[in-house]
Computed example of a mutant assay.
Amino acid sequence: MGLLAELFDGHVATAQGDPRSLAAVMYPIEQSYVSRATESRRREFAAGRSLARQAMASLGVPQAAIPAASDRAPVWPAGIVGSISHCSGLCVAAVARESQDCSSIGIDVEPATPLDEDLLDTICDDDELRWLARQAEPGRGLLAKAIFSAKESVYKAQYPLSRQIIGFHAVSVALDMASGSFLARFRVDAEPFLSGYQASGRIAITSEFIATSVALKNVKEKAAQRELSA
């Protein structure tokens, strides 16, 4: 589906829309979470939940509320993993049935504009900065924004499993724009992820948006195997 077409394999369902025009509906428990939020925040929240239900429906999953936990993370129905992201003019959702082939999902969308140069050192590690320095100047800022987006996707995918808040330098990203993919390497331990753990992701860029995705596989199984061998 448009921007999201190449971001996931067939077992992940996606949906996208413009939160400004989407006819979104919230369940009462969802409405209570954003009852004091601004109108734009309520609109984005509602769009994300509606799109997530649209994606779940394509998997044959019954309609259900998707409340937010105290840490603001979506609470998915049992047996479902997913991720929601939004930026100005676009909201996206990705969901899948939890399995060995899909332990967790992360998705992120950003405007296709250069990353603010003042944020480069905050977002990028030394390896990423050296790689960016070798890229042609006109597109360097956009690639930096792509690195930011990739890290956001990795964070969203790892958090439901680790419940740990990790910083931008906790993960190092290597983009491969020719193949529309990236490789993210953990530089810290965030159980069940250990330093050196690598996760592959995908990236798509249009004239308006950058989208990145990560689908983690067999994470719980690998963690159990480590415990047994310890």
Rank of each mutant, 00 (worst) to 15 (best):
A65Y: 09
W76P: 00
I29F: 03
A46T: 07
R41Q: 07
L120H: 12
A68L: 08
E117L: 14
E117T: 11
A69G: 13
T38D: 14
I107R: 01
L51W: 01
L129S: 08
S32M: 10
S58I: 02
P62T: 12
I123N: 01
A78T: 13
A96P: 01
V95E: 07
T38F: 04
L115V: 03
H86Q: 10
G82C: 11
S40T: 14
L90M: 11
I66Q: 08
P74L: 13
A46H: 10
R140F: 00
V34E: 03
S50K: 05
G89M: 09
L119R: 04
R36C: 02
P111E: 14
Q54K: 14
Q100T: 11
D121I: 07
R41S: 10
V81E: 02
L119S: 11
R130G: 00
E117H: 06
V81S: 06
Q63M: 12
I123V: 15
A37R: 13
S32C: 01
M26G: 01
R42L: 07
A68I: 04
G60T: 07
E128R: 08
V75A: 02
G89H: 12
I29E: 14
P28R: 02
R97K: 11
A55K: 06
E117G: 02
R42M: 13
D116C: 09
L132G: 03
D116L: 12
R97W: 08
A133L: 02
I80R: 06
L115H: 06
R97H: 05
D121T: 15
A47E: 05
R130D: 12
S35K: 15
P28C: 05
T113F: 04
A64R: 14
D121C: 13
D116S: 15
A23M: 04
E128K: 03
E137T: 13
V92H: 09
W76T: 05
S99A: 15
G89F: 03
I84P: 04
A46M: 12
Y33V: 15
A69M: 07
